[in-house]
Design a protein around this nucleic acid. Structure first.
Lengths: 237, 237
DNA sequence: ACCTGAACACCGTTCAAGT
DNA sequence: ACCTGAACACCGTTCAAGT
């Protein structure tokens, strides 16, 4: 499209690569985003990209972080439920602005820094609202794909992992940077087993959310709920 | 792997192609499933596959249907809530057996026949349970990714669509085959506008489910809910 | 009429040769 | 030391040539 305009001659950096990739995916779809096409868009030889991103997966990681970074910070002047509600709706808007983003975020096998920061902050909102660590944990699972357009369970399955020492160091570093995630992750369950690591009983988490919804449906059924009696904040356009 | 064993010499048909594709994806992951690799597995030249599937997208459609076809039918001897619960947990198991399936199903731009049949039957369960057409509609949206591991909203955005006549004929055929879907899809909203087609207010549906969950969380918080007091049907293995 | 090998237009990434 | 063109090992799909 833009074939090496003057602007494209500026020296490359990771940020410029990422923003160009996001713009290209927005304009032409994620399927036509290739390293070669992106390089061409930047007026650069394909190999030049590999100095700023290790490979395509890392490019996609960075793109995911750009989108997650667009989510509004929490509003401190609202009660916890309202603040969580606003924030999740803001996340939804970010994903709607970049239709490719849900799929890219879902396909990440490791959480990216911006995603971790977002989750940490979200957990902090529940904790500040008075939810226990235990309840907050299951609540985060229950929101699941709703909180970001992806299921956290995808983050569990993974590579063999490094030796115990580096793992412990990584955990300390993680606790420092994301204290709320650490608090939830290190809770002990009622058997006394510590549940850092493999951790979550996915079947339990799935049923927790499923039953919350089914119970809610049943309550509405008994009340004779109808959408016509519900106020719509955002009328159909 | 198997290089044209005797079994592979049997004449090809769509079913055998699909089952081989599912087996290959199960064994080696969806990323290494290519037309060429699949052909090799079947002891066949790549072009031979194109007599049984039009292209790779159609292959993926067929694979999605194989997985959806594995979901158990509803149990007629259980109340609606229990039956829906069982069925969704069965869907979850099917997806867990084929880790690639969620992503493939999510990436379909058009619903496949088995998916439509599953959704139709699921809607029928809610209707039989006494939920109104209106409530059932929003309930299906609320379950969203939970009902199948994908967000139905993905089905909305799409191609230009054929001329009105064929469209009307397709709608009649659809009503005959999937009566419950038709009933929900053709409901009139309170403005009197008929909402076949573009139809759903996604923002409303998203908030409907979000608020059901948030209200549920708040209720549990007030009750001092703890996971240790909750019976786990499926203890951690 | 059917089948298929070769070819086309792409990929992501490696690597050795050039400056 | 840095940069990059060519090459490698793949893709999905078309198409014309062979039977």
């Amino acid at each position: 499209m833009t074939e090496q305009s003057e602007a494209a001659r500026r020296p490359l950096n990771t940020d410029r690569v990422l923003r160009a990739a996001v713009a290209l995916a927005d304009a032409t779809g994620i399927d036509s985003l290739s390293m070669r096409r992106l390089a061409q868009e930047l007026g650069v030889v394909p190999m030049a990209l590999y100095k700023h991103v290790a490979n395509k997966e890392e490019l996609l990681d960075g793109m995911a972080d750009v989108v997650v970074g667009e989510i509004d910070p929490p509003d401190p002047d609202v009660d916890w439920k309202g603040a969580v509600r606003q924030r999740i709706l803001s996340a939804r808007q970010a994903l709607l602005r970049h239709p490719w983003a849900s799929r890219v975020i879902e396909s990440r096998t490791r959480p990216t820094p911006a995603t971790l920061a977002y989750l940490d902050s979200m957990i902090g909102m529940f904790r500040a609202g008075g939810l226990s660590v235990d309840l907050t944990h299951h609540v985060m699972h229950a929101l699941g794909s709703r909180v970001l357009g992806f299921s956290q369970e995808l983050f569990d399955d993974g590579a063999p992992g490094p030796d115990p020492d580096t793992q412990a160091a990584a955990l300390r570093e993680m606790s420092r940077r994301y204290p709320h995630i650490a608090e939830v992750a290190s809770r002990a369950d009622h058997d006394g087993r510590s549940v850092v690591g493999p951790g979550c009983d996915d079947q339990f988490e799935f049923e927790f959310a499923l039953d919350l919804l089914l119970d809610g449906f049943d309550r509405l059924r008994r009340q004779g709920w109808s959408s016509t009696t519900t106020q719509r904040n955002h009328p159909r356009s």
